[in-house]
Design a protein around this nucleic acid. Structure first.
Ligand code: MN
Ligand code: MN
Ligand code: ZN
Ligand code: ZN
Lengths: 143, 143
DNA sequence: ATATCATTTTGTACTGAGTACAATTTTATT
DNA sequence: AATAAAATTGTACTCAGTACAAAATGATAT
């Protein structure tokens, strides 16, 4: 079969369009933060994002990172992950999927969720906006 | 059918035994905290617990509440719930069940979980100690 | 281009849930 | 009653996140 390989590229135009498509006006910081999130799927903390983007933008402030995170959350570009540690983590994948948080190395792993069977009667009439599944324990390489 | 009605009573002896059964030496504070948790199944915050127990023990310190919470967590008397708000909440029910956190009134509702169907291959060899399911949205009385 | 307005970014001070830890009080043991 | 162990308290501290006004950048009008 003949065909073109579609390469996922994170050039500036792609990143700009990604933001615009999500209702966010592109700016240097927002583009860099988005690029970092797309390339580093490690569920980073705000600190992680700051340290990475600071390399490119040495005038970067922590507040700008938090501003960007808040904006991205609001526009559903990212979702927040609260593992129980004090630092929140952020995920560019906003689909419903499970997270395993390792108590030793603190890494967060993704896993696919097929379905959650639960008693819907208690939540009758409730508006469910988010469904989060968090497992905790010890990962394979730490045990 | 003739029979005895077994009344669940939270008298001092019951509470003491509850603690001892979970490997915790009873003390005035621990008994009062346990009693509050058993009688008020509202997934309270540390502040909630402090305010309630302070009524009975006016010398109570916040540190003692946190000490007790940490001990109860360690002995699996309670589980922690992180809803994304800054204050953690605590649950005397340590079984696996779902929590719905209302974004308006901040109440946390329980719901039963029958099963979570997920791709186990990614977590192969992982030790899973906790399984937490958190839904967020707007509850029936707030919408 | 220049001025004017809007948005973004920055710096600083602040908040508050939770923690560290030594001093004190209470409880158990000799 | 003296001693040791455990529980409780008070105080100072941490630090992720927030509030907010000043500064910088970008967009629009003249
Ligand atoms: Mn994820
Ligand atoms: Mn519960
Ligand atoms: Zn690990
Ligand atoms: Zn509500």
């Amino acid at each position: 079969m003949e065909g073109k390989t579609i390469e996922k590229s994170f050039d500036t135009q792609y990143l700009k369009d990604y933001l615009i498509d999500h209702g966010v006006k592109p700016s240097t910081i927002r583009i860099k933060v988005l690029e970092y999130l797309l390339k580093n799927r490690i569920h980073p903390t705000a600190e992680d994002i700051y340290n990475a983007v600071y390399e490119d933008i040495p005038t970067l402030s922590k507040t700008s990172v938090y501003n960007t995170i808040d904006l991205f959350l609001e526009k559903n570009i990212i979702q927040i992950i609260n593992t129980g540690n004090k630092e929140s983590r952020y995920d560019i994948d906003t689909s419903i999927h499970g997270h395993f948080s390792c108590n030793i190395c603190n890494r967060v792993f993704d896993f696919d969720i097929d379905s959650i069977e639960y008693d819907k009667s208690i939540l009758d009439g409730f508006i469910i906006n988010e469904q989060k599944v968090l497992f905790k324990g010890i990962c394979n390489s730490c045990k």
